[in-house]
């Protein structure tokens, strides 16, 4: 099978969880029914750190080609900060999600919730890291700081949207698999979707409307907190006009800044 070959090609077991996640093998309804999301969250977290750091490298590459000489410490800072950005956002948003999730009577236990979120982060960072070469190319060949800022915002948005739609989709599947098994209808439908991708919608029955609402709100909150967290942790790209700093003064907010940057792009 081609699948086995591709998995063997990955070599180490470190990325095999990620690979199976991206392929949608771990999130098939059958395997979810057998035992939830079967992945090791700690090991996957390390993979996330590696992927996010690799994107940080591409992002920080802008600072390495400054007119006044390379600023290598910015690269190190970006490589530390991108993983930090994801995990801090998760830490800020996870407790409330757990509480509200339990409040509206979802069947997801705490462990399953953590695994689900780590899986979503993994998808997010995998997309991010795969876009890294494009970012690195533009970082190296561009002198416009506002362009690079907006470019990175767009890349993060793409990764975030894909990761979060994976989250909603997997949640949907988790509740499908946790549902009563005496109904044969979803089982029959499953056989058609043996090769379904990780983002493929399955079936009509999903989690209860309350759970869905909580997760939808959470996805929005996660995006907002993530954006603002990125603002707090800045600079990632490094303004060529200012000297390196680990952090900038806390002022303004992400959305104002994006708007300002958009304006400065045209002036």
């Amino acid at each position: 099978m081609a699948t086995d070959k591709a998995r063997g090609g990955k070599g180490s077991g470190w990325f095999s969880d990620l690979d199976r996640l991206l392929r949608g093998e771990l999130t098939r309804t059958q395997s979810l029914r057998a035992g939830g999301l079967a992945l090791d969250p700690l090991r996957l977290a390390l993979v996330i750190v590696a992927l996010a750091a690799s994107y940080g490298l591409c992002m920080g590459a802008f600072a390495a080609f400054r007119a006044d000489g390379p600023n290598l410490i910015q690269i190190v800072a970006s490589m530390v900060k991108v993983p930090l950005l994801f995990f801090l956002t998760l830490i800020v948003t996870l407790p409330s999600l757990y509480v509200f999730n339990a409040l509206v009577g979802s069947r997801l236990a705490a462990g399953a919730l953590v695994r689900l979120l780590v899986a979503a982060l993994a998808v997010m960072t995998a997309v991010l890291a795969s876009l890294g070469p494009i970012t690195a190319f533009f970082s190296v060949s561009t002198t416009s700081y506002p362009f690079m800022l907006l470019f990175n915002v767009a890349i993060f948005a793409v990764a975030g949207i894909l990761g979060l739609s994976f989250l909603l989709q997997t949640l949907h599947r988790l509740s499908l698999s946790a549902g009563p098994t005496d109904e044969p209808a979803p089982l029959a439908a499953e056989s058609e979707f043996v090769d379904q991708g990780a983002l493929e919608p399955v079936g009509e029955r999903g989690p209860s409307p309350h759970v869905r609402l909580v997760f939808r709100i959470w996805v929005v909150v996660f995006a907002l907190v993530g954006a603002q967290m990125g603002w707090v942790l800045r600079p990632f790209v490094g303004n060529p006009k200012t000297p390196f700093a680990w952090f900038r003064v806390r002022e303004s907010n992400f959305f104002q800044a994006v708007f300002q940057t958009l304006r400065s792009l045209f002036s």
Binding site: A2, L22, R23
Partner: peptide, 22 residues
């Protein structure tokens, strides 16, 4: 081609088209 390929690979995988990627 080389720069655009990694993200296309991940996208194809994510949308369940990995087996066709070659």
């Amino acid at each position: 081609f080389a720069i655009s390929l990694p993200s296309f690979f991940v996208l194809n995988t994510l949308f369940g088209l990995r087996d066709d990627f070659t």
